[in-house]
Design a protein around this nucleic acid. Structure first.
Lengths: 133, 133
DNA sequence: TCTTGAACCTGTAGTCACTACAGGGATTAA
DNA sequence: TTAATCCCTGTAGTGACTACAGGTTCAAGA
């Protein structure tokens, strides 16, 4: 009848982060080591879930774990300024935009290549020819 | 007065691939082990340069080294068909497009976040608030 | 011929963000 | 009690390099 303890498995389920990944985040100090049951199993609280969800959202936005660490620190730190957070965000935004531009360049080139080739049974391939030129 | 031997450094310079990377490609069997000088230094031929340039072009298009290996094999293999090469290309094209879509989603979200924040000296930050929600 | 310095060699370990075991112990429902 | 399911630690693997350390070879100038 005792309230269910939140084990790592339950936390994994509610956050959508795999058990191994949660342990990994703990190992690298991204999330705190939670208290343990008598048998040594991790027991989590609501705060842990929130912190982990924060990490997840940041990861979905493409922030590196190092960025996430900084953002978590800023969140805790009362001396922080909005400026720092916005700066991290816009810096990352620039990185993302650069990646998009790179990928679009690839896309165009690949598309041109693909269209140059009929894809039949021929042993002569214009794609290979262009790549090998 | 003997013709200059193409050392790994010269090859690196003409292909734009770093020395360490060339040695790495050799180690994983992507390019053949070239003959050596008496002192044990690698000596390359024009064919090596071509092969390496092929690898570079493929990498610039975002193909994995495993894909590159396959493409190199197809290039050597007289029994290949155009179909296989085109298939690899279009499959990769789809991957690239998926990546672009993912990054664009990130970009939109990051942009919205960034615009929600003035970036001043305030200690309350709407970006963190939204991420932590 | 000797010397200097640049270029080369091997082998190993580090990067990032996980993921996948192996070989065990804890917990829970029947 | 027993079986099934969960959890534990520690280590090693992934991809595609990159960065050493500690040595050897080579080419050019004195």
């Amino acid at each position: 009848m005792a309230a269910q303890r939140t084990t790592i498995g339950a936390l994994a389920k509610t956050t959508g982060i795999k058990i191994e990944t949660i342990r990994y985040y703990e190992r690298i100090g991204l999330i705190p080591s939670p208290p343990r049951s008598e048998g040594g199993q991790r027991i989590y609280e609501e705060d842990d879930r929130k912190r982990l969800s924060f990490v997840k959202r940041c990861r979905e936005l493409g922030f590196s774990l190092d960025d996430v660490r900084t953002l978590l620190d800023l969140r805790q730190n009362d001396n922080r300024t909005c400026r720092e957070v916005k700066e991290k965000t816009t810096t990352h935004l620039r990185t993302v935009r650069t990646k998009i531009a790179d990928l679009k360049r690839m896309e165009r080139a690949l598309n041109t290549l693909a269209q140059s080739c009929e894809g039949g049974d021929d042993t002569h391939c214009p794609i290979l020819e262009q790549l090998f030129a």
